[in-house]
Design a protein around this nucleic acid. Structure first.
Length: 585
DNA sequence: CGGATAATGAGCGGTAAA
DNA sequence: TTTACCGCTCATTATCCG
């Protein structure tokens, strides 16, 4: 290991954004009693060990007082930057603890909005002509339906309405439910704490309320269409080229983003294209009515990957990563050509998934072929059986009568990751396949993100949700867009290790903070990071697809499924970032 | 050696679109 | 009609650890 190359000179860390930024008091009081999740700042120490003053400078550069920094280093030792940062966060939370704020109920702007909200509601009911005999749908019912539509369970929604009152706004109700969920999680983790944080609103951020209000209004207006008119359902394009792919003649696409979608920040959301009906309508509706861009990665590499992307990035002057990866199986795996039968007409692979074909299957295929004269093609029925299985499991020909699933490093290459990106460090083969199968295709994502290069020559601050093995980070890095500060969230420790290891190996100059759970990212935490970094330039996320994908035979429950419901956390967090950015303007 | 834990493997339909 | 699909569960096998 080349220890010299792994060190990041703390002095070189680019903190220039801070000069223009006033570090505000961060209201973190409610967290003081809770254990912080693993927060790790990357100040990779060189093998010689950092000098104490460098560490001190670094943390002072982050906006902490010298006194606090010294205390934190004293408590944790200078080696353990992770613990130092945790201590600093806790200390700053205690020191900056603001006087108890009034609940937003008493917020004037909020009360005004409440009034208009009810007015709108009445108007809408009287206006609706195409719904036949007007069924009296109560305010409560509508709020209930909306909350369920947002992904909350009926029980949660009912409980919230009961607790907060029938006239509570959607904002209050969602706050209540979130708080209930958080405390439920805290109960599980920490036992029942008497001093658990109470439901909290984002004080002084009435824009958020308004936005939620807008969402609710938009939802109400669109609801009849979605139910009555199938033509409104988003359909997938064929061919799946999105707003254009390299080397394909595409009609010059123009698009006009809805006002609410325009950044900052830029955002980029991804999920499987072939989701159950209506899912993409919901996703698009929540993400400010931006039309999804559906792209199949077979136009970028040798494997298919049909995905939808909702983003507010410019779509002109994109450029691909170079060198362009091979587009056919033979180009990608030249050694397979020798064994490839003429009747296997595949030129590209299907979607790379999390599971691979079994040894028994490849054995069956070998035996099926050995029954026949190798000079001649097997019967059509046998060909069909083998081809079906090869397509289903992405098998390639590696020897006489021998097919095999791809090796993990081959999948890495197809997806645009560096070789051995997911290898070693305690990661099992199964984990590698799983993490890779859940990842972005880097060339595809990079093509979309390439427009950022000219816009941010000094680099970007990135909020990466559901980062997985860091597809977005790798894409930006390969584009030559410097990563200044990255907050990366992923539930899997294996994945976080992969990203951190990549971060250190590629000598990143910025700071990487990794968190485990998107549900821990609340307004206070976000505001804290945004103050520290000067806001996020880009919010990327591909939320879990396992309840959406056709591969799932057991729990394909749609966007409300156990994991896929986390889409609403992407929306929640993006909305908070937009809100805080607007407020700080 | 033996119990605990981790990794692997086999089998599992249905939806939506072309 | 055919085709494709960022998966899940549970039994079995492999590995770890005292």
């Amino acid at each position: 290991m080349a220890g010299d190359n792994c060190g990041v000179e703390v002095d070189n860390i680019d903190w220039d954004t801070e000069d223009e930024l006033e570090i505000e008091s961060i209201p973190l009081a409610s967290h003081a009693s809770l254990t912080f999740p693993s927060v790790e700042a990357n100040m990779a120490s060189s093998s010689a060990g950092p000098s104490n003053s460098k560490i001190v400078d670094h943390f002072i550069g982050m906006g902490f007082s010298a006194k606090m920094v010294m205390k934190a280093i004293e408590e944790n030792g200078e080696e353990n930057t992770n613990s130092i940062l945790e201590t600093l966060l806790t200390l700053s939370a205690l020191e900056n603890s603001p006087p108890k704020q009034q609940h937003v109920d008493t917020d004037e702007s909020f009360s005004e909005y409440e009034g208009s909200f009810l007015d709108d509601f009445t108007d809408l009911d009287s206006d609706s002509e195409n719904e036949g005999p007007a069924k009296p749908v109560s305010d409560v019912d509508n709020k209930l339906i909306f909350l369920v539509d947002m992904g909350y369970s009926e029980d949660e929604a009912n409980a919230a309405i009961e607790r907060c009152g029938a006239h509570s706004s959607i904002a209050e109700l969602t706050d209540f439910i979130s708080a209930a969920q958080i405390s439920k999680a805290a109960d599980v983790l920490l036992g029942d704490l008497p001093d658990r944080p109470k439901p909290k609103n984002l004080d002084g951020c009435s824009k958020l309320k308004k936005r939620r209000h807008y969402d609710y209004e938009a939802w109400k207006k669109k609801k009849p269409k979605c139910f009555d008119d199938d033509d409104e359902t988003i359909r997938l394009p064929n061919p799946m080229l999105g707003f254009g792919v390299p080397n394909e003649l595409c009609p010059t696409v123009q698009r006009k983003l809805p006002e609410a979608a325009i950044g900052p920040p830029y955002f980029y959301y991804e999920n499987v294209a072939l989701a159950p009906k209506g899912v993409w309508n919901t996703i698009s509706r929540f993400l400010y009515d931006v039309e999804p861009e559906f792209v199949d990665s077979k136009h970028f590499c040798a494997a298919a990957r049909k995905r939808g992307y909702v983003h507010n990035l410019p779509i002109h002057n994109r450029f691909p990563l170079l060198p362009m990866p091979p587009h056919t199986i033979h180009e990608a795996f030249p050694l397979t050509r020798k064994w490839w039968p003429s009747w296997d007409t595949r030129t590209q692979l299907n979607c790379l998934q999390t599971c691979i074909g079994s040894a028994r299957l490849t054995d069956r295929i070998r035996k099926a072929l050995e029954d026949y004269d190798s000079e001649r093609d097997p019967p059509l029925t046998v060909q069909k059986f083998i081809l079906d299985q090869c397509r289903k499991w992405n098998l390639v020909w590696v020897g006489k009568n021998k097919v095999a699933p791809l090796e993990p490093d081959e999948v890495e290459m197809l997806l645009g990751f560096p070789k051995n990106h997911t290898r070693g460090g305690g990661i099992s083969r199964t984990d590698r396949y799983k993490s890779l199968g859940n990842s972005f295709q880097v060339d595809t994502v990079a093509y979309h993100l390439s427009v950022l290069k000219d816009m941010f020559p000094g680099g970007i601050n990135l909020l990466s949700l559901f980062s997985g093995i860091g597809g977005a980070e790798v894409a930006l890095h390969r584009l030559g867009i410097p990563l200044k500060n990255v907050v990366s969230v992923d539930i899997s420790e294996v994945n976080r290790n992969i990203v951190r290891s990549w971060w250190e190996q590629t000598n990143q100059k910025g700071t990487l903070i990794d968190l485990a759970d998107v549900q821990e990212l609340d307004a206070d935490r976000l505001q804290y990071y945004m103050n520290l970094f000067g806001g996020f330039d880009l919010v990327v996320g591909g939320s879990p697809c396992n309840n959406l994908t056709g591969s799932n035979r057991y729990t394909r429950d749609g966007l409300e499924g156990k994991e896929s419901i986390l889409f609403y956390d992407y929306f929640r967090i993006l909305d908070l970032v937009k809100c805080i950015a607007t407020k700080t303007e």
